[in-house]
Simulated scan of single mutants.
Amino acid sequence: MSHDVRGLADPDRSVRLSVLGRLLLLAGDGDDDAAQVLRAVVADYRRFDPEIYTRALNQVGLFGDASLAGPLLDCLADADYGCQAWAAGACGRLGIDAAVPLLIDLSAHPDGFAREAACRALGQLGEEAAIVALAARLDDPAEFVRAAAAAALAEIGGQRALASLWRAFESKSYPRMGYVAAALAQFGPLVFDRLVRATRHDDPELRFWAARALGSTGDPRADSILTRLAAEDDGVTRTGAHVRTAARTALRTLHRAERRTSSDDEIRQP
């Protein structure tokens, strides 16, 4: 290697960070030697300060490849080193499917940041075996973890993931369910009719979030439904939010999506 890895272990933190920053810039410009040094940091992570390791993994897309699978799995199982969340993120971005069992275990970690990282990685890997674990995280005490689990289920897709999200939607366990609505919207035709029925539910909570989800589907059929809710629905949620306000917001979201689609179509025309 033409770049010296020793600078990354220098006793002076400022030196370490300066060397790392230069290596990342070089790797981003296609410097293979710099990328090799950064891969060496991940491969032999115990030699390096966790700050160097985690900062490198934040940019793993610049230098990472399949050769890092083994050491990343090792770090993912290494509770003492304390960088499992970053290893999880790298496994997700690099598509390391062998990490799924460890990520499922990590999704129940005491630290919320680790749980969130595990959920995000499982979504990126798209593994159906993770659905049960992710569904459990929809009842996580931390909202940001619940949001990550919902997004991951939407990424995985399919009827089982949809069923888990719909149960969370109907349970109304939490007053703010924007992340569930956003995730449900990703299922498009699979969930559209259910959301329409929910806009007629007796509970304003369900009508509110169904409206929000419909606006994010981008489906033009939602326009008349949301217009009706915006004009007629006087329901109020337990947090004091109005269904008609949700419908108006959803209409704006829907119309923006329609304009983007129309613009994209014009660009694609010869």
Rank of each mutant, 00 (worst) to 15 (best):
D97L: 10
D80M: 09
D32N: 12
H3A: 01
V37S: 02
L57Q: 03
L206H: 12
L24W: 01
F144Q: 11
C119A: 07
A246V: 06
L226R: 09
R22D: 13
G30W: 07
F169Y: 08
A210F: 08
L73N: 02
H3G: 03
D33I: 05
I225A: 01
H109N: 13
D10N: 15
D44R: 15
T199M: 01
A231T: 12
A154V: 12
L26V: 02
Q186T: 11
R146G: 07
R115L: 05
F48C: 09
Q124R: 15
G70F: 10
A43F: 13
C91L: 04
D105S: 12
A149Y: 09
A183T: 02
R260D: 12
A129T: 13
A136M: 13
G157Q: 11
L102I: 00
S263W: 13
G158N: 04
A108N: 09
Q159T: 14
A246Q: 02
A69L: 08
I156P: 06
D10I: 11
V145D: 01
A250I: 02
H3Q: 06
S67W: 08
G218T: 11
L134C: 00
A43R: 15
D74H: 11
T227I: 05
S216H: 15
T261K: 14
L62F: 07
S14N: 12
E116L: 07
C83P: 05
A79L: 09
V37G: 02
D111N: 12
G7M: 12
